[in-house]
């Protein structure tokens, strides 16, 4: 088995294929735990959305669907460049791999920048849960605040995962730069890609839940 780094086969494994299978399976299981982790928040959101549909609708309409949609597009593009990075790794093309990883990080940064702008807006508009919270024309301030508590918890946790993902991408870029990967050994890139796509998928659920439901109801 030709490998750029003969030490890449750890001693508990017999073959490189076994090691790769183990790593990929481990990442899938980890992603399942992540789904359960976010699942708790999705449950809370679903419960309160069904308790207070009008308030949640009104609170949701204060979010800009346009900004959310643009950010969704940015994040999906980052997933596309990630796929291209994995493809480059498969073909053993080091240069392309590095560039696609960097592109992925750039799109990730743009997403986080837009998110930060949106959060900043909430502070300006007094939509941050706390003593100064106020939602115009809403008699049930507590319930409205609940929406924004969940909004911050869910997008905050998602953003935290993005930041972790950026850290992983940085390490991957560094290792690719050092020439640690080739067509026979690129498991870390593969596994990092799985994680990145997962974080994307979470957003695919967050975007409609937080921004889009009940948008059509005229106020």
């Amino acid at each position: 088995m030709a490998s750029a780094n003969p030490l890449a086969l750890r001693e508990q494994f017999d073959t490189a294929a076994q090691q790769k299978d183990a790593s990929v399976l481990a990442m899938w299981i980890f992603l399942v735990t992540e789904i359960m982790f976010f699942g708790g928040l999705f449950l809370a959101y679903t419960a309160y959305r069904s308790f207070y549909p009008e308030v949640f609708g009104a609170a949701s309409r204060t979010l800009s669907a346009t900004i959310g949609a643009v950010n969704t597009a940015v994040l999906l593009t980052s997933s596309y460049t990630m796929v291209l990075a994995v493809r480059a790794a498969q073909k053993g093309s080091r240069k392309a791999l590095i560039w696609f990883l960097i592109l992925t990080m750039i799109f990730g940064t743009v997403f986080l920048g837009v998110k930060a702008y949106e959060w900043h807006e909430k502070f300006v508009e007094h939509h941050v849960p706390g003593p100064s919270f106020h939602l115009e024309g809403e008699p049930l301030q507590g319930q409205a605040q609940l929406f924004f508590s969940l909004y911050f918890a869910m997008t905050g946790l998602h953003a935290l995962h993005m930041v972790v993902g950026m850290g992983i991408m940085t390490v991957m870029t560094w290792r690719a730069w050092l020439g640690r990967f080739n067509a026979d050994y690129y498991t870390p890139i593969d596994v990092a890609g799985l994680y990145w796509h997962f974080v994307d998928v979470i957003w695919i659920f967050l975007f409609p839940l937080l921004y889009l439901i009940d948008r059509h109801v005229p106020k």
Binding site: F37, G39, G40, L41, Y52, P129, G130, Q143
Partner: peptide, 27 residues
């Protein structure tokens, strides 16, 4: 993981009074 997120929410509730489990705020 579900226990983890539950504990996280209780922590947020205590620190920031976000109301997830507080009936006064609809929780």
């Amino acid at each position: 993981p579900v226990l983890a997120v539950t504990i996280l929410l209780v922590g947020c509730e205590r620190l920031f009074h976000i109301g997830i489990f507080d009936p006064a705020l609809g929780g």
